[in-house]
C-alpha cells in the first residue's frame, strides 16, 4: 500500500524542522513505524532524562490516532509499567487535524504535568497523591537510573 501523502509530508517536516527536545525517525523497512525520543522537560522530575518511545501509524491514520508507547521505564501516574499512556488526545479527543509532532508535544507536556486524578498506574497515582515529594523523588531516581542520556 502506497504511503499516503499526509504521512510523507509529516515525515519530511519532522526531518526538516525538528521539534526541540523531540526526535522521530521512521524505520527504513516500515515508514509507519517511528523511533521516538523525548527529552524530559525542565523543572520536572524527568529533567536530564531521555525517554525512548515507539510510534506506529495505523492504516486509517489520520482518522484514528497513532499508537504510542514508552520503551523507557518511567515513574509517572499516567504511564503504566508496559509504557502505555493515558492521554485524551490519543483516545477520545483525537482529531485528524492533529499530527505526530503535536501528539509528541502533548506527551512531553504530560511529563511536565502529571495528572494523578486520572491515573493509569494506580499505585503510582496513589503515592503521588499521598506523598508527592517522595513520589517525585522516585521519579527522579528512575530517570537517572533508566533514562540517562
Amino acid at each position: 500500500m502506497a504511503l499516503p501523502k499526509r504521512i510523507i509530508k509529516e515525515t519530511e517536516r519532522l526531518m526538516a524542522e525538528p521539534v526541540p527536545g523531540i526526535s522521530a525517525v521512521p524505520h527504513e523497512d516500515n515508514l509507519r513505524y517511528f523511533d521516538v525520543t523525548i527529552d524530559g522537560p525542565s523543572q520536572s522530575p524527568y529533567e536530564q532524562g531521555t525517554f525512548k518511545l515507539e510510534l506506529f501509524l495505523p492504516d486509517d491514520y489520520p482518522m484514528t490516532p497513532p499508537k504510542v508507547r514508552f520503551l523507557t521505564k518511567i515513574y509517572h501516574p499516567n504511564i503504566d509499567k508496559l509504557g502505555r499512556i493515558c492521554l485524551d488526545v490519543l483516545k477520545s479527543n483525537w482529531s485528524p487535524a492533529l499530527q505526530i509532532r503535536t501528539i509528541l508535544l502533548s506527551i512531553q507536556a504530560l511529563l511536565g504535568a502529571p495528572n494523578p486524578d486520572d491515573p493509569l498506574a494506580n499505585d503510582v497515582a496513589k503515592r503521588w497523591k499521598e506523598d508527592q515529594n517522595a513520589a517525585i523523588q522516585t521519579a527522579r531516581d528512575w530517570t537517572t537510573q533508566y533514562a540517562k542520556k
Binding site: K5, R6, K9, P62, P96, A97
Partner: peptide, 9 residues
Amino acid sequence: GFVCDICVS
C-alpha cells in the same frame, strides 16, 4: 490556496 490539514492536499 487551501491546504487540507488532514491529507495535506
